[in-house]
């Protein structure tokens, strides 16, 4: 990338440049962009300015939210057709899962993230396989990194202990939300990711209710490709 840009030659097809078509296209495109902007070459001052701008992470206008973010989160999650259960302690999760699944008539067989391995699933009569899923499990159990009050969204970060498929492939997704980690807006979620993780994981999946489509006659149908149901267990 540090090689000086050469103007495209006529008959370039036969020239050795054919070996690096990607770089040729890159140089030509950036050249045309600069020409359109009235620049002659790379602009170190503009680069410094852009990096400085990025470093400020400017936040735009945001709708005002009430002090009670939890309440707002609950309202918005309900609007997006996530169902919600509130628990005092983490140990209550298995029984809450059993209760929910019995209520909707889904077999109590889940694929879950490793962090839930220590919970007393057997007592609650729920079978939880601690492994990634390929879609064979009726239920997927994940935690979330944080939740967003403004939109009723849960933010899921991918990782070795957090396979993404668990929230996508099963018909029912149960997500455990730490009640102390409900932030106001998406911007706050990004600030929190930077603070706690430093950089973005491979995937940040923000889920706001079950998968849906309106592509046939604009009639909303749930469960387009992903889960038909998203159930949130807010702990604490």
């Amino acid at each position: 990338m540090s090689a000086p840009a050469r103007p495209p030659e006529r008959g370039a097809k036969q020239s050795p440049e054919r070996a690096q078509p990607a770089n040729r296209a890159r140089d030509n495109i950036l050249g045309r962009v600069r020409q359109a902007l009235g620049k002659t070459g790379p602009d170190p001052t503009a680069r410094e300015a852009a990096l400085a701008h990025i470093a400020t992470h400017p936040i735009g206008p945001r709708p005002a939210l009430p002090a009670d973010l939890r309440q707002r989160f609950l309202e918005n999650a309900a609007k997006l057709e996530s169902s919600v259960d509130q628990l005092a302690r983490r140990e209550e999760i298995p029984r809450a899962v059993a209760r929910y699944l019995t209520g909707i008539g889904v077999p109590p067989r889940a694929s879950g993230w490793p962090e839930f391995a220590d919970l007393p699933w057997g007592e609650a009569g729920v079978e939880v396989a601690i492994r990634p899923t390929q879609g064979q499990d009726p239920v997927g159990l994940t935690s979330v990194f944080c939740a967003i009050a403004e939109t009723g969204t849960v933010v899921v970060l991918a990782g070795p202990e957090a396979p993404t498929g668990t929230l996508l492939l099963p018909d029912t997704h149960i997500a455990v939300v730490d009640g102390s980690r409900i932030v106001a807006s998406m911007e706050d979620a990004f600030v929190l990711i930077r603070k706690e993780r430093g950089s973005l994981p491979r995937a940040v999946n923000m889920v706001s209710g079950p998968s849906r489509t309106g592509d046939i006659e604009q009639t909303i149908v749930l469960g387009a490709h992903g889960p038909f149901r998203v159930h949130l267990l807010i702990v604490g």
């Binding site: 997006l80 990634p132 939109t151 969204t153 991918a158 990782g159 070795p160 396979p163 993404t164 498929g165 950089s199 973005l200 994981p201 491979r202 995937a203 940040v204 999946n205 923000m206 889920v207 706001s208 209710g209 079950p210 998968s211 849906r212 992903g226």
Partner: peptide
């Protein structure tokens, strides 16, 4: 908001199953 908003960054890391 839409039901899914995904931000994808780079290739999958060591030990990741999906991605």
């Amino acid at each position: 908001i839409t039901n899914y908003v995904d931000i994808l960054t780079g290739i999958k890391g060591a030990g990741e199953y999906h991605g």
